[in-house]
Structure formats: structure tokens, C-alpha cells
């Protein structure tokens, strides 16, 4: 079995970690170590440390949280390069705490990384740079692969189509090219955050509705409040509706 085959067949979470690490490495190369490494280290160690500690207290067994590693990487890759240390620390802590405290119907409801980013936007007034996507083509390629592995192409497509149509129509009405709507899609967000399995609906049809809703929220936000980061707000709104979707859509 060659290395590619080995990576392809391994655990999905590890594949996502690999993909995010590649994004991080490319971003670091583009922005310089000084602007990128500190927040990666702070965010990842905070998330893993806190999550592992909380789970250890519950299970009384040593635990290494790979999902916290994913959350930590996402947070660091979205926050602005060279940001003050207390913001990745807070965002990662909020992410992990939200995962263990905000539960409706037995699951945690908010995508942890997304929730951490959202609250730090409102608490610290920080903006998001999404520097995990310094190379658009790489994100498109590896993002599609990971989404395929997660079996979530339908979810990404439902978001993609909804936002393209709604925002495209809005652009046309404003006298701008329809295709500009595709240029507004946050690839890092749709391939890495939208597909998160635990905070999206259980059933396929539900996930399509979830994708459509997120795309609609995002389009409205882009059209009305351009200075607000549309993706994280849209995802948090859809996260809130997941219990309703799960109870109504059973296939």
C-alpha cells in the first residue's frame, strides 16, 4: 500500500488535520512565521489542553482530543495574522467551553470553532482574515477531497447553489455581474466548517436544508451588512435551527 492510499484510507479526522496543517504551512510561508506561528501555538494548545482536561475529569482517563486540535487550527487560521495573544486564547477557550456546556437534545449545538470566532468578533471587535486560504486553488482541491471523504458534497453544493443564486440575483439588480456571487464564497469555511458532522443535521435531506439556510443567511448578510463576517454569523444561525430540522426531517 503506497502512502497516498494509506492517507486516503485513514481516519477522516486525521485527514482533516493533515489538510489544515497543509493550509497552515502554506499560510505561514506566505505571511511569515512571526505573523502566524504564535497564534497557531496558542490556539491549538489552549483548545487541546482545555478539552483534554475536561474530558479527563469526566472519564478519569488520559485523553488526547483530536477534535480540539481541529478547532484550534481553524480558529488560528481565521483570526488576523499577528493578532494579540489573548484573542486566540479566548476564542479557543470559548470554543471548547461552548462544546461542553451548550447542549440541546443531547448534542452540542454550535460548531465550536465557529462559536469561538463569533464571540471573539463581538467581544474584542476583531475581524477575520481567513489566512488558511492564502492559496485559493489548494483550498478548492483539498477541500473538495475532504468533503468527498466526509460524504458532504450535497451539503456544500446546497450552500454553493443557494448563495450563488440569491447573491447573484442581488448583484444583477445592482447592475453587477452575476458571477461575482461565486467570488464571494468563503471556500475555507464551506469545506472545513460547514461540513462539521456533529453540529449539522443527522439526515441527508436535513443537511441539504441546512446548507440552503446557511447560504441564504450568508447572502442576506453580505447584501445588508458588508462589514460583518457573513459565514460565522450565518453558520451560528443555522446551528440554532438544527434541533428543529432534526425533529422535522427524518430521512
Amino acid at each position: 500500500m503506497n502512502i497516498v492510499e494509506k492517507i486516503w484510507k485513514t481516519n477522516i479526522k486525521n485527514q482533516l488535520i493533515l489538510v489544515l496543517s497543509i493550509f497552515a504551512a502554506v499560510g505561514m510561508f506566505q505571511l511569515g512565521i512571526r505573523n502566524s506561528l504564535p497564534q497557531l501555538v496558542i490556539s491549538v494548545t489552549t483548545a487541546i489542553g482545555l478539552d483534554s482536561l475536561i474530558i479527563y475529569k469526566k472519564l478519569k482517563k488520559p485523553f488526547f482530543s483530536t477534535s480540539a486540535l481541529i478547532s484550534g487550527l481553524i480558529i488560528a487560521l481565521a483570526l488576523p495574522p499577528g493578532i494579540a495573544w489573548h484573542i486566540p486564547l479566548s476564542a479557543a477557550s470559548i470554543a471548547i467551553f461552548s462544546k461542553h456546556t451548550i447542549h440541546i437534545r443531547g448534542r452540542h449545538n454550535f460548531n465550536p470553532a465557529n462559536f469561538g470566532l463569533l464571540l471573539s468578533m463581538f467581544i474584542f471587535g476583531t475581524y477575520l482574515a481567513w489566512w488558511g486560504a492564502t492559496n485559493t486553488w489548494l483550498v478548492l482541491l483539498l477541500g473538495t477531497l475532504i468533503t468527498y471523504r466526509f460524504k458532504r458534497i450535497h451539503l456544500v453544493l446546497s450552500f454553493f447553489i443557494t448563495q450563488s443564486i440569491l447573491l447573484g440575483t442581488y448583484f444583477v439588480l445592482k447592475g453587477e455581474p452575476f458571477l461575482n456571487s461565486i467570488l464571494m464564497i468563503n471556500l475555507f469555511f464551506i469545506f472545513v466548517m460547514l461540513i462539521e458532522p456533529k453540529t449539522s443535521p443527522i439526515h441527508r435531506k436535513g443537511r441539504i436544508i441546512y446548507g440552503v439556510l446557511t447560504g441564504a443567511f450568508s447572502s442576506v448578510l453580505i447584501a445588508t451588512i458588508p462589514t460583518l463576517d457573513p459565514s460565522v454569523v450565518a453558520l451560528a444561525l443555522s446551528n440554532l435551527l438544527v434541533p428543529v430540522i432534526n425533529s422535522k426531517v427524518k430521512e
Binding site: 505571511l31 511569515g32 495574522p81 492564502t134 485559493t136 464571494m184 468563503n186 459565514s231
Partner: peptide, 19 residues
């Protein structure tokens, strides 16, 4: 020193490299 500046409003697919 050398300081990074970045686009502070999400402006599309290339926002991540706008610095």
C-alpha cells in the same frame, strides 16, 4: 519593525491573501 496588514472585511475567495 516589519508589520503585517490585512484586509479587515471579508471580500471574497481571495480575502485570505489580501495583505
Amino acid at each position: 519593525g516589519k508589520f503585517h496588514f490585512h484586509c479587515s472585511v471579508y471580500c471574497g475567495t481571495g480575502h485570505g491573501k489580501m495583505h
